[in-house]
Design a protein around this nucleic acid. Sequence first.
DNA 1: TGAAATGTTGGGGCG
DNA 2: ACGCCCCAACATTTC
Length: 482
Amino acid sequence: MTLHIVWLRRDLRLSDHPALWQAAQEGLVLPLYILDPEESSGAAERWWRYHSLRHLQDALLKKGIPLLLRRGDPLQVLNTLLADTDACGVFWNRRYDPAGIAQDKAIKASLLDQGIKVQSFVGDCLVEPWLHQHNGLPYKVFTPFWKSLLAKFSIAPALPEAPLLPLPELSPAWLNNERLEDWHLLPTKPDWAAGFTDYWEPGEAGAQSRLLDFLNSGLNNYSEGRDFPAQNSVSRLSPHLAHGEISPRQVWQQTHHYLQQNPHLEKQGAHFLRELGWREFSWYLLFHFPTLPHTPIRAEFADFPWQYNREFWQRWRTGQTGYPIVDAGMRELWQTGWMHNRVRMICASFLIKDLLIPWQNGAAWFWNTLVDADLANNSASWQWVAGCGADAAPYFRIFNPVLQGEKFDPEGTYVRRWVPELAGLPDRYIHHPWNADASILKHVGLTLDVQYPSPIVDHLQARNRALEAFQSLRKVAVDDPS
DNA sequence: TGAAATGTTGGGGCG
DNA sequence: ACGCCCCAACATTTC
């Protein structure tokens, strides 16, 4: 019987996995995961990946199949494994990040050269990024992109779980597996992820139950509730999607199925799927603009007068800016590996516009601390907030952290949860404790700059400074004919 | 997927 | 009854 290696990457699932599916149709399957030391990854994402791999390993083992774990240069690993086994080919689902594309391309060429069968599949997007405008250029604006995607493509149905056959004889020579524990994906000293398990259930089963839970209890209030971080109205699927424990096609299909049974939620469902569209758009942009992770898409932003300040940077990261909604977000991120989307925008706006610290710094911090770290989503979203992206919020769209807090966390529930030293404040002052009378502060036992800092910048001044910085940029762009 | 500044309108108090 | 002012509410413009 033929044996194929299926190289798993950010697609750690067994259902709707075209590469696994096809390999299973043709015979036996040897699933392989390679830890590539050259690949950039964040600490929180590694924590998630450890658990995700462990779940996948268990699920496969129940079917009598080992998950091969190897470390090293992927081409070398594949060559060694091909030499040690009877595998006749390698299957994988395609990647769309620049490094992944380059690596897959080189490996495919090399293997084909040796007469080894290589097949790649579409597994991790709704539609591959080949879509373009009538003039042949890639879309830069989300809405036309999404409209055109919906109009021109029917989303392929998700595949069932691959019918994997148990591997008959496990040769110790190649089964000589590495131990997941030896990869040091988990933090040790200190174990800052100890609390993460309270919030997350990594793995395919966890992803499926998360989606069902959201459809049953979050979707009915999605449009209205999604901006309120204290509410449970968002899907929290991002880390599952980022690791491919669930595919966008599955989310698409299962949501539509749910909507057929609950037609009154049609609008909410469309809104939710539109957000899935943003993920799609981010990957589309990364494919067409491979410099997205580090270079502003709007070239004039290369000259932006950033003002890196070590003290501000430290306070932003640790949630000690003196703006409660910002600090709550940064602490939620630190303690759970995730932050509510509304608060991500507020925190990002604050770093970029109030502190004038480069968006790339913020992106790097999020990359390291988010369990859903996703190169396309992270890069595109930071560029979006900075105003330098393809379809960017105008630079002058500056969030006021007090107003945002009052609007989207009116009772201060979210702030009190993550910034407990403010918990005793009345709602009226929860988003601006520095305005509370001395008697109130005294009454709740809060001394500013002791338990909680005063604002590190004055928002109004910071806003004006940011607008000036932006003005200078425009002048440079206009004056300079080159 | 803003916020602040500026402009407009209209009701009510008041001389 | 009328004009004037004040100002809140809403709309528009600007950053």
